[in-house]
Computed example of a mutant assay.
Amino acid sequence: MKYAETYKNSLLNDILPFWERYSLDSVHGGYFTCLDQTGKIFDTDKFTWLQARQVWMFSMLYNEVEQKESWLQIATSGADFLKNNARDSEGNFYFALTKEGKPLVQPYNIFSDCFAAMAFAQYAKASGDERFSKIAKTTYNNILRRKDNPKGIYEKSTGVRTLKNFALPMILSNLVLELSAILKPEEIEQTLDFSVNEVMGVFLDNDSGLIYENVMQDGSLHDSFDGRLINPGHGIEAMWFMIDIGVRKNNQNLIQKATDTIIRILEYGWDKEFGGIFYFMDAQGHPPQQLEHDQKLWWVHLETLVALAKAHEHHPTKTIATWYQKVHDYTWSHFPDPEHGEWFGYLNRQGEPSSTLKGGKWKGCFHVPRAMYQCWKSFEKIEAK
């Protein structure tokens, strides 16, 4: 089967038209992300990281696929909305805004800033507007300044048990490549080295071969809910970032290690009874604290398809091909909505939609189209061979 055409067709003829048709706020700028199964808006609040992800998406497609004026206009609408409304007086990005752009939720979460930096860098390239390069660079420096204490005054823990979280080094490994046009080469290499060391040397546990979500400051494991937490999708997504870095640095060992880790996490995280990948797991098999732990989520499966496609492109093995087919068959038979377009986000353990929304507070125009693009490009190269 020719997969490149499947992904390309889905991206251009299903996924993007859904967001172009239903998400645009022509009055205030930016995007509505709370869309029901048919695309109807059910909440008008705007979540900064989803706004930024959609700016990034349409800017990236304009830069990499086709210079369509409509794509640039969509990106401009979100970029201007964020620039004018989304930052506090210190340049930190609020988590949520009203549809008009008034701040609703304080900038407690550094990931809004990460996605804003990504968005502005891509948009600056698409539009040629240097103001957005400057904001991207300032925001990136702000992220680095906050990386050891990302929540700052909004941190809830008392400091008695200081676990560090996997998400930031993971996201930095991708963010720095996104900003490569506006950072100095030494800045890029410094952050890449930091990220690879953290992801593969600290959060990847040598004994189990699994990525832990939280470890102690010295890298040791902690026997608690948070300390035992495994998020298979997170770990696998990080591995395609590692493969990208391995390709950039021509580091075959890193590509091999990332590929091995993808397989190990899949073997651990696959639901052998109903199929699909669990959302959360406990490293010792205890009941996880997250009540949604056995749900099957869209982004987990899509990021796994990207990771397997990249592994297949750069380090093909029979095991990778077998796993790709298995994940592909489950994902494509459960998540797409043939009636109304786009993909369901949340399935129960048995694989039925537990919610029929197409977008909300956490799901926007990002994981589905990005995965379609990434898999399309990987399979183009695989099939050309």
Score class of each variant (00 low, 15 high):
residue 1 M to R: 15
residue 7 Y to Q: 03
residue 12 L to V: 07
residue 12 L to T: 05
residue 14 D to I: 03
residue 15 I to D: 07
residue 16 L to Y: 00
residue 19 W to M: 01
residue 21 R to D: 10
residue 22 Y to H: 15
residue 27 V to C: 01
residue 29 G to E: 02
residue 31 Y to N: 00
residue 31 Y to C: 03
residue 32 F to Q: 01
residue 36 D to S: 09
residue 39 G to E: 04
residue 44 T to E: 15
residue 45 D to I: 07
residue 45 D to C: 02
residue 47 F to G: 02
residue 47 F to A: 04
residue 47 F to N: 08
residue 48 T to K: 01
residue 50 L to T: 11
residue 51 Q to S: 06
residue 53 R to T: 01
residue 53 R to V: 00
residue 55 V to T: 00
residue 56 W to Y: 06
residue 56 W to L: 01
residue 66 E to W: 04
residue 71 W to S: 01
residue 75 A to I: 02
residue 76 T to R: 14
residue 77 S to A: 08
residue 98 T to F: 06
residue 99 K to S: 15
residue 105 V to P: 00
residue 105 V to S: 08
residue 109 N to G: 04
residue 110 I to S: 07
residue 113 D to Q: 11
residue 116 A to W: 01
residue 117 A to C: 09
residue 118 M to D: 04
residue 118 M to G: 06
residue 119 A to N: 03
residue 122 Q to C: 00
residue 122 Q to S: 06
residue 122 Q to F: 00
residue 130 E to Q: 14
residue 134 K to G: 08
residue 137 K to V: 12
residue 138 T to V: 14
residue 141 N to H: 12
residue 141 N to Q: 14
residue 144 L to H: 11
residue 148 D to W: 12
residue 151 K to M: 14
residue 151 K to Y: 10
residue 152 G to M: 09
residue 154 Y to N: 06
residue 158 T to I: 09
residue 159 G to C: 09
residue 162 T to A: 14
residue 170 M to D: 06
residue 171 I to R: 04
residue 177 L to H: 05
residue 184 K to Q: 13
residue 185 P to F: 09
residue 186 E to M: 11
residue 187 E to P: 05
residue 189 E to A: 06
residue 190 Q to T: 15
residue 192 L to M: 08
residue 192 L to T: 05
residue 195 S to Q: 08
residue 199 V to D: 03
residue 204 L to S: 04
residue 205 D to C: 13
residue 208 S to R: 04
residue 208 S to W: 05
residue 213 E to N: 08
residue 213 E to R: 06
residue 216 M to Y: 03
residue 216 M to L: 15
residue 217 Q to C: 05
residue 226 D to C: 00
residue 232 P to W: 11
residue 237 E to Y: 04
residue 237 E to F: 05
residue 245 I to V: 14
residue 247 V to P: 01
residue 248 R to D: 03
residue 248 R to M: 06
residue 257 K to D: 03
residue 262 I to L: 10
residue 266 L to F: 07
residue 268 Y to R: 10
residue 269 G to I: 09
residue 272 K to R: 15
residue 273 E to T: 13
residue 274 F to S: 14
residue 275 G to F: 11
residue 280 F to K: 11
residue 280 F to P: 00
residue 283 A to Q: 02
residue 285 G to L: 04
residue 285 G to D: 07
residue 286 H to Q: 15
residue 289 Q to E: 13
residue 290 Q to M: 12
residue 292 E to A: 13
residue 294 D to A: 12
residue 294 D to S: 13
residue 299 W to A: 10
residue 301 H to Y: 11
residue 306 V to L: 04
residue 306 V to T: 13
residue 310 K to M: 14
residue 310 K to N: 15
residue 312 H to D: 14
residue 317 T to V: 04
residue 318 K to G: 06
residue 318 K to S: 13
residue 324 Y to T: 12
residue 329 D to A: 15
residue 333 S to P: 12
residue 333 S to R: 15
residue 334 H to F: 12
residue 335 F to C: 10
residue 337 D to R: 10
residue 338 P to T: 14
residue 341 G to T: 09
residue 343 W to V: 05
residue 347 L to E: 10
residue 350 Q to P: 13
residue 351 G to T: 11
residue 351 G to I: 11
residue 354 S to G: 07
residue 354 S to P: 01
residue 355 S to P: 00
residue 357 L to M: 11
residue 368 V to C: 11
